[in-house]
Amino acid sequence: MSWGTISEGLAEAVRLILSLDPTVISITLRSIETAGFATFLASIIGIPLSLVLTMKNFPGRGTIKFLFNSLVGIPTVTLGLVLYMLLSRTGPLGHLKLLYSVQGMAIGQAMLILPISVTFIVSALESKMGEVNDLARTLGASETQVALAVLRESFNGVSLAIISSFNRAFAELGIATMLGANITDLTRVLTTAIALETNKGQFGLSFALSLILISVVLLMNYLIRVLQGGET
């Protein structure tokens, strides 16, 4: 690929973004919607689960933590393949009609990022547990109030875990491809579109979408700094 092709692609990318190209915008919004929904699902399951794993001592706790730690590195295509088989029309969960839908992709991504969320949230909670636990308890907190205090004190670590999970979902390709299949105006998201357009030689659109992808990730990381009240 010559430098000419690259610079033409970049120029086209800038034009597409500045002109607020409707295709680019709809793909971007769909990506945010999918990853956002996935992050929401992973958080409403992941936060309480992490609190239980941190605060409660029960048999099998270590095993569950080990399992989640191991699943952090699960290949997206493998998870995509398993979910594809489950959700395909003839599969055991085919009747849910989730294949080739934003919801289907979001559920797949939620399963992908749940281990990341849980692993990092547990580690954030555990780092504050020592100082907050005895303090909140001796001041009269119930189990639930202690959990809330630990969660509040771990806000920075927990929000970092959630944003990282969002970024992982936002930037992954395997599940979006397997469960979404890059259908125009239905399941086409940034990563699947980039892969397709690059194959078609449409570097301008690929570059534009990649720039947006990176910008959103950077923006999320910036937001978290602001949220945590750190230096920006």
Partner: peptide, 19 residues
Amino acid sequence: LLDLRRRVTMVFQTPQFLN
């Protein structure tokens, strides 16, 4: 235990604080 902790309060050697 909760009732006990609501009536007995401990001050630690190294004070810890909520943010």
